[in-house]
Design a protein around this nucleic acid. Structure first.
Lengths: 173, 173
DNA sequence: TATTGTTATACTCTATAACTATA
DNA sequence: TATAGTTATAGAGTATAACAATA
């Protein structure tokens, strides 16, 4: 067959209209960043979704699964698996509430606290790498613009977006 | 039960460390933007992934499925379903290549061309809405910063990110 | 024998809705 | 009866690998 005719590396610019748009770049950068962050987190044995929950628990210890699930916009049945993961790794405890024994109050273990710290350090690293191409002033400006856009979208700010689909689509060849 | 104790609306700031980060906001904005874009596209009967393919076909008509699949980083078996969708809607044609009858050369139909134009108009609308909170100068600056970051990540620029997971997680209550 | 496109299988992830225990 | 949490079921979507036609 004629390689030059059919196997040309890439079929052209494919549409500057999209590849140069804010929406396209935002989506591409967001997905790429999330994927690399998940990879950085992997040595710790958790995924970004677990970190989101760990932070929630740390920020308001002793809450029930239901309350945290609502705050994270995660359905109850998924919360079970999420908390199971963290509990199996000894990062979080389910404590029975003596007043209402239907509820499980979530608490961080010492191990969980330590891991959360390490995870946040990794997040800071990731942030630096991500913003590497920008000067400090540009980085601050970029962050400010991102905040303006996020505010324009409405909705609760603290709710993570990625809980809807797997944090890192399997990539091993 | 004591509502004030357990049902407090949101368990606090939940971790400024993440919610204020570039990575978090990028991911959140990217996902949100993609979701709303998919909704805008729905009346046309296509999803963002179809638009990406339509653009590819338009940019280099007559290529084989395999070539386009590689350019979009989409595995062959998924290309089949993607092209099926577009063909069933009469937007794209599979033409047999007389020289090598294993290949299907992809061509846009007249209807496909018309729909592509409308979709691009919708994309422009979406872009304007997304950037609504920014002044024109800020918008240009923001786009420039996004491009710098995207360049820093390496990899082909035109490859869309969202083809890995469903463009719009089902949301009907 | 190698390659293009297709189909089939198995797997992962999710939400919905029963189910258990407490209230 | 209603609620917190759990489990079971079914559905969507994917990649891997077998397959058919053509080279």
């Amino acid at each position: 067959m004629s390689e030059a005719d059919v196997l040309t590396p890439a079929p052209g610019p494919s549409g500057e209209a999209l590849t140069g748009s804010v929406g396209f770049l935002l989506s591409k950068l967001g997905v790429g960043s999330a994927r690399r962050f998940a990879e950085r987190l992997r040595p710790l044995g958790i995924e970004p979704r677990h970190l989101a929950l760990l932070q929630m628990v740390a920020a308001s210890e002793g809450r029930s699964q239901q309350v945290l699930g609502e705050a994270l916009a995660v359905p109850a049945s998924r919360m079970v698996a999420l908390v199971d993961d963290l509990e199996q790794r000894g990062l979080v405890e389910r404590r029975l509430n003596p007043d209402d024994r239907r509820m499980r109050a979530l608490h961080l273990t010492k191990k969980g606290r330590g891991l959360l710290e390490r995870a946040l350090a990794i997040a800071a690293e990731h942030e630096s790498e991500l913003c590497g191409p920008l000067e400090p002033a540009e980085r601050a400006q970029f962050l400010a613009l991102l905040r303006r856009l996020a505010a324009g979208q409405g909705g609760p700010l603290g709710v993570p977006p990625g809980l809807g689909c797997p944090a890192e689509p399997p990539r091993e060849p």
